[in-house]
């Protein structure tokens, strides 16, 4: 059995342009490897090709070139779909059905028979907090409630792999936290999660690894800590004599001294101690030492803008 939940090899998807439109490569030579048990963030701005990739993984569309595998089998084999679940980008469900009806419908598609089926549906309605609204039609649900029905249908089959397309788009911050908690819960159960997003929220921060996609091309890939490495530490001190500047400058980083006020930006945590020693032995006062971490937002913006200029 393959230890990869998702694997794509030079995956390319071209939408042939109708009439006047140019053909677009929505995804270009994508090589992805998502391990089992991992939370994988699939990030990129709108139109980057995230949904296209997901549609290929689910067999809704077919690759133009390259290959895609899900749980060790070629993508899109419905027999494999017992172990997969999918949360669509928007609640694309029959809105004339009630919450209970739609879950029952999907449970039947999964082949879950009665009496198991009603039990499972009730359990999940309870779990996502929709027991009271269960018999109202979906068209009366708020966006957040529809998303919760979406999550409930994802859990019907106790999947090994969950593919969530923009799970937090358009939700309020409390719903973000709910979803993040659910994701962490699923991780603890050993599930694999593949989460796409164009905006960064608390949810993406729980990812083990992320890939950043821009215009169909993967431009970043790695563990979050590695990608976010390269922050700096800022040290501010007062009453520092001029003669202390030289030894501090020799340690590297950005150094400025004005009227006894010293500001140092050190890229490396290790040398901050030495700066502090020098300042104090020269009679200065440390005011603050603050680590500045690079955020996912920084990385995202840098990567995408780098891509635009290229």
């Amino acid at each position: 059995m393959s230890d990869l939940a998702i694997k794509t090899v030079n995956l390319t998807k071209r939408y042939s342009g109708l009439w006047s439109k140019q053909p677009v490569d929505a995804v270009k030579n994508l090589n992805l490897e998502v391990h089992r048990g991992e939370i994988f963030g699939f990030l990129g701005p709108n139109g980057a090709g995230k949904t296209t990739t997901i549609k290929v993984l689910l067999g809704i569309i077919y690759p133009t070139d390259g290959e895609a595998y899900v749980l060790g089998k070629p993508a899109g084999d419905p027999k494999n779909h017992h172990k997969i679940s999918y949360l669509p980008e928007n609640p694309y469900f029959y809105d004339y059905m009630t919450g209970r009806e739609i879950l029952t419908f999907y449970a039947r598609l999964f082949g879950i028979a009665e009496p198991q089926r009603s039990k499972r549906v009730n359990e999940l309605l309870e779990r996502v907090g929709l027991s009271r609204a269960a018999d109202q039609p979906l068209r009366t649900y708020s966006k957040g409630m529809q998303q919760r029905i979406g999550l409930a249908q994802c859990l019907l089959n106790d999947p090994e792999l969950l593919i969530l397309d923009e799970p937090t788009a358009g939700l309020d911050p409390i719903a973000h936290i709910d979803i993040r908690d659910m994701i962490l819960d699923l991780r603890n159960q050993g599930k694999t999660l593949f989460i796409s997003s164009h905006q960064l929220s608390d949810v993406e921060r729980v990812c083990d690894r992320v890939a950043i996609l821009n215009r169909g091309v993967m431009v970043q890939l790695g563990r979050i800590e590695e990608l976010l490495a390269g922050g700096h530490v800022e040290l501010i001190a007062d009453k520092v004599p001029d003669n202390a500047v030289e030894p501090i400058k020799q340690l590297g980083g950005k150094v400025s001294l004005h009227d006894g006020r010293l500001i140092v930006e050190q890229p490396d945590n290790g040398t901050v101690d030495r700066v502090i020693d020098i300042v104090r032995s020269a009679g200065g006062h440390i005011i603050s030492v603050k680590p500045y971490r690079r955020t996912l937002e920084d990385l995202f913006v840098e990567t995408i803008q780098g891509g635009k200029n290229a």
């Binding site: 689910l58 809704i60 494999n80 469900f93 029959y94 999907y106 598609l109 999964f110």
Partner: peptide
Amino acid sequence: ERRTIYTILSKPVQR
């Protein structure tokens, strides 16, 4: 058009 088919085809349903 309503993309309700996406969720259906993501289930163990043959076309």
